[in-house]
Design a protein around this nucleic acid. Structure first.
Lengths: 222, 222
DNA sequence: TAGATTGTTAATCGATTAACAATC
DNA sequence: TAGATTGTTAATCGATTAACAATC
């Protein structure tokens, strides 16, 4: 596969392409042009073709793209076919919700185990995923090739947990704590899920809208 | 307040500024330059000054920025001082986790009520937030000025729920379902929290890293 | 074949960075 | 005052859009 340096913007669009292609496939559509795809995603056909061209030539002139084929290509680009293993750290509210609701396998990731310090949880299973003692994490990581840690511990435990995980060969942390983990020196990949950032952006857009509206009203009133 | 058209990139950086300023304040630092702030956030001083200049003049030559003052300005830009009310729809796993763990008030948002269809939940309270019957949502929205709906229902209920909310004057939806709600015609503001998009990006970065490493090893081997 | 649509090169647009006069 | 640092204008860089030859 081509691996030129691809911009962050392109990478963030890939999962959206994937979701749209899945939807098209569900609806029995097996062919689509960049024009039509652009319409449905609010992007220009040019941009879509540029995006894909970072990774190869997936279309056919005069025809467009085969939905199933393109879907598989993008899935592969995203690494969904690599069978990455993940461990979940901290089976509290958010951790439990992820185990219950979120389909790791839909992303091609295998949730292999969860870890907690709570005695009543240790040794149990949830949806087929064993919950183990946090004490055993180092052993576990030595014996299993785990790429991703899903960090769901309370704020106070975040730094220590990250240290342990990093020292034991974890490649990436999917960070659900509100702590900024990204250290300049660390080679670990961190993907933050900052709920508050998301809500604050929303709040901004609402405010912007209301101010616009207020401005218009004022103008009309004159 | 200035309300020129501000780019999305700038808006997405505002919550990060806020978090950093909160952290500085906690550490008793009450003055910072764009240079130092840039260092800590991995941004250039120029970018930071450009970003702030979209909204006003918050600094002072030769001194820098007052941390507390700047913090309040950004909070205000984000609309945190407007007391927006929110309702949460669907007290399942993720809904419950949000009510339990997430501090709406830290974002200046008041979670006024939650709604569900489950009999055993209706009429109860969780952390001071009443859980009401979904049937009563229209009434509730007519009698309360609610800006934001936090959508935590199962996929199958998402579209219907959105329709009801939109028709009853909700300004914005904070969307935790995996459904793409953004309709081209609808004037409603939608902020998506797509866990899978986030994990897939992470998966991409891990794959990229591994391919790079594999490439280097191959080269070294020659 | 003619029409459609790709992949890619060139043009445009917007965002980031650099530079610097203003000034605390 | 001299040094520091802002806000802003200009320069650069990168991403998006447009155009078009290639070709299915």
């Amino acid at each position: 596969m081509k691996r030129v340096k691809v911009s962050n913007n392109v990478i963030r669009r890939l999962p959206r392409y994937l979701r749209k292609l899945d939807e098209l496939q569900e609806n029995g559509i097996n062919r689509i042009s960049s024009f039509e795809l652009g319409q449905q995603l609010g992007l220009t056909p040019s941009q879509i073709r540029q995006d894909f061209s970072c990774f190869g030539e997936f279309g056919q002139q005069g025809y467009g793209y085969n939905v199933a084929g393109l879907r598989e290509q993008i899935a592969s680009i995203l690494g969904m076919d690599r069978g990455y293993k993940a461990v979940l750290i901290g089976v509290g509210n958010i951790g439990h919700a992820l185990m219950d609701n979120f389909s790791f396998s839909d992303c091609g990731v295998q949730l292999a185990a969860a870890f907690d310090i709570k005695e009543s949880l240790i040794g149990t299973e949830f949806k087929g995923v064993p919950i183990l003692a946090w004490d055993q994490i180092e052993d576990y990581l030595k014996n299993n090739e785990v790429a991703i840690a899903v960090l769901c511990v309370p704020k106070t435990a975040a730094i220590t947990a990250t240290d342990v995980l990093t020292r034991n060969g974890i490649e990436a942390i999917w960070n659900f704590t509100n702590i900024e983990l990204t250290e300049p020196n660390s080679p670990i990949i961190v993907e933050n899920v900052h709920f508050s950032d998301s809500l604050l952006s929303l709040s901004y857009f609402v405010s912007e809208r209301m101010d616009e509206h207020a401005g218009q009203t004022a103008k009309t009133d004159k």
